[in-house]
């Protein structure tokens, strides 16, 4: 293996980029779970819908239009899902929720096929992000740096909201004990609704951000679902810390696994997940003790 420092810097940035993409996706899923104890298997499908909505908007008004439209559209979809399905599923057990959202995967997959066809779509990167930037002695694609920066910005923003603001305090109270939070006069129902929609918006954002790197295909939601679930289960459901830790672990294991032990790369992460669950059945940083 090469001893070139630039090579390892490059790989570390690759790992960071993958981590941030997964973070955008997993944070919504994990906070929704922490607050509402609701597992949304269709979260990956929302990411796909985000990518498609972004691609459709970008075809008209360019990348930035897509970047704006995708989260809004998916949040709008979140409103529909919440009032139509989620609200009524709140008191059902995890299995009922898993199944409803499993059904939703099929529905959303076929709906994207009906609306946008089977052929892959694409979003072009905006001009100034399509080049490469020289840093740390290497040249790295500007768009990937943008993804890393966006991920870090969202992480910082959420950490601030959750840690420093009143809404954050309400959410933390809700995660700890929603019945008690309701007794303290917090409108838990509205809180749930808001958090669900923000989670959906973040999934949509992840979709449109991933689109210029990957391709927009109907099954992209299914492909990303398992990695996202692994991230939040390793990290521990319900916590911001868990989501970022899980994302970083996944990103670095996957990237350096591919470099150092390519034969094991695809089994490695599952083995890690199994190991985490054996040693800490609730993940590394669960929301509740």
């Amino acid at each position: 293996m090469t001893s070139d420092l630039g090579f390892w810097t490059l790989q570390a940035l690759n790992a960071l980029q993958l981590s941030m993409l997964l973070f955008l996706l997993s944070i919504g899923l994990t906070v929704i779970f922490g607050l509402m104890h609701f597992v949304n298997l269709a979260h990956g499908s929302l990411y796909a819908v985000g990518a498609y909505a972004g691609a459709a908007a970008a075809a008209v008004g360019g990348f930035w239009m897509g970047l704006f439209v995708a989260p809004v559209a998916v949040a709008g979809m979140g409103v529909l899902l919440y009032s139509g399905l989620i609200k009524r599923m709140r008191r059902s057990g995890p299995m009922a929720q898993v199944l409803v959202t499993f059904g939703l995967i099929f529905v959303l997959l076929d709906l994207t096929r009906i609306f946008w066809g089977d052929l892959p779509l694409a979003i072009e990167k905006p001009g100034f992000l399509s080049g490469r930037v020289a840093l740390l002695g290497i040249e790295y694609p500007a768009y990937r740096l943008f993804v890393i920066a966006l991920g870090l910005a969202i992480f910082t923003g959420l950490a601030w909201v959750l840690g420093q603001t009143q809404v954050g305090a309400m959410i933390r109270a809700g995660v700890d004990n929603d019945a008690m939070a309701a007794c303290l006069g917090i409108n838990v129902e509205r809180l749930f609704f808001t958090v669900f929609c923000v989670g959906c918006a973040l999934a949509g954002l992840a979709g449109v951000v991933a689109a210029p790197l990957l391709s927009v295909t109907p099954d992209m939601g299914l492909q990303i679902l398992i990695p996202t679930l692994i991230v939040i289960v390793i990290g521990g459901l319900g916590s911001l810390k868990g989501a970022i830790a899980g994302s970083l672990i996944y990103g670095f294991v996957q990237t350096f696994g591919a470099v150092l032990a390519p034969q094991l790369a695809s089994v490695l992460i599952y083995a890690l997940l199994a190991a985490v669950l054996v040693i800490r059945p609730m993940g590394l940083f669960p929301a509740k003790g």
Partner: peptide, 19 residues
């Protein structure tokens, strides 16, 4: 040979090819 249908990021492999 990259994991089929599971590889989101080809970055790691491309860096190896480059090196």
């Amino acid at each position: 040979f990259t994991p089929f249908g599971k590889t989101q990021d080809f970055g790691p492999y491309l860096a190896k090819a480059q090196a």
